[in-house]
Structures are given as C-alpha cells and as structure tokens.
Computed example of a mutant assay.
Amino acid sequence: MELKDFTIPFIGLKEGKHQFDYQIDNSFFELFNFDEFNATAVKATLEFHKKQTMLELTFNASGTVNVHCDLTNEPFEQPVEGTLDLIVKFGHEYNDENEEILIIPHGEYEINVAQYIYEMIVLSVPSKRIHPGIEDGTLQSEILEKLEELQPGTEKKETKEEIDPRWNTLKKLLTDNK
C-alpha cells in the first residue's frame, strides 16, 4: 500500500457523485509511522461529489482495530465507526487551517485523501481502551486479579489485629480531649 493509492485525479471525473472504497490494514498506518494498532480491518468509503466550483467529500469508516487494553494490557478487537465531511474549494494558495474546508490552488487536478482517512480512523478509536471482558466479567487475567486485590477498601481483617499498641495510646489521647 502506498500513499499514491489514495490520490484521486478529479480533473477527469464528470460532475456528480463518485464512490471510492478502501480496505485499510496495518500497512496503511505504517505509511504514517503509526504503530498503536496490532491489527486493522477497516473498510473506508469516500463519496466524492464533484461540483462546478467545489468538491464535497464524505468519508465513512467501519471495522475493527486490535489494541491493548489500558488496564490489563490484553489485546482485543475494538470496533470503530467514523465519518468525516470535507469541502474542497479552489483559491490562490493551499490552506488547510479549517478542518472542514480545504482550499487548494486553482489548476490542481488531483487530491490525496490518505491523511483524512488516517485522522478519521485514529480519532474514532476511544482514548481509553477497555477490554469488553472487564465490563461483563468474562475476562480472566492475572493483571486484573492483581488490580482487584490491590483495590482500596478491600483490606484484610488480619491487618486490624496487627496494629502497634502505641497507636492505641495515641488514639486514646485524641478521644480524651473531646
């Protein structure tokens, strides 16, 4: 997979709607030196509407990315769904400061959409990645068991018996002053 695979020569397209489909896997993310996904299986579609004075692009993505759980470090399939709308206008110089409007110079005849597909997929993955087995209790993991053991409020009763007797004397001083 190469970046040029995502270049659309719109000058040769008739006015109207056109659809482009892309199968996104990890080789796509390697183009951006992005390695947070173990595996990727996402279908991205682009509805490309060519008008006389501008282009309207609607990106959609759905599929899964395999990531590590933030709590247990267990890998799991994270579903992703994303959409992105982009209007491309023609102007004197290139300008991508507005995230919804791209201005390209008059005379341009093609556009590369890889960056927009990349951003749409990466932003559709939750920032906190939690294995679904944690929520429904089906995940069995040593890390998860250790986290539950170390959770505050689950102190063992044995620790109460092992209190140093000097602390009891200090506690008595606090209660005597009331």
Rank of each mutant, 00 (worst) to 15 (best):
V125L: 14
E81M: 06
N33R: 14
D21Y: 08
T40S: 10
H18E: 05
L102Y: 06
P126S: 10
E30Q: 09
I104D: 00
M120D: 00
S27F: 01
E119P: 07
A39S: 14
L57G: 02
A41M: 07
K51F: 15
D96H: 11
F34H: 11
L84E: 09
G91I: 01
E77N: 15
S62C: 08
G107H: 12
Y22C: 12
T53S: 15
E97L: 11
E108C: 07
F76S: 04
E100T: 07
D70T: 07
Y109D: 14
N112R: 07
E47Q: 13
I24N: 04
N73G: 05
I111M: 02
N66V: 11
E135A: 14
H92E: 15
F48A: 10
H49T: 15
I130V: 15
L147T: 03
F29R: 00
F28K: 04
I130E: 05
G133A: 11
I130R: 01
E110V: 00
V67Y: 06
I101D: 07
E93G: 00
E30A: 14
D96E: 15
F29H: 00
E99Y: 12
N112C: 08
E135V: 09
T83P: 00
I143Q: 13
D21N: 11
T83I: 08
N26K: 12
L123R: 07
I101N: 02
G133S: 09
V113F: 08
K89D: 03
D21F: 06
P126W: 03
E108I: 02
S141C: 14
D136K: 11
D21A: 10
Q78V: 03
L55S: 02
E110T: 10
D96A: 11
V122E: 04
Q23A: 12
G16M: 11
L55F: 04
H106P: 00
D70C: 09
I121F: 10
F90A: 02
N98S: 12
G82N: 03
A61Q: 06
F28D: 01
L55R: 06
D21H: 12
I111F: 01
G107M: 08
E30V: 13
E142A: 13
N38P: 01
L84M: 13
L150W: 09
H49N: 15
I104C: 04
K146V: 12
K89Y: 10
Q23I: 07
E15I: 08
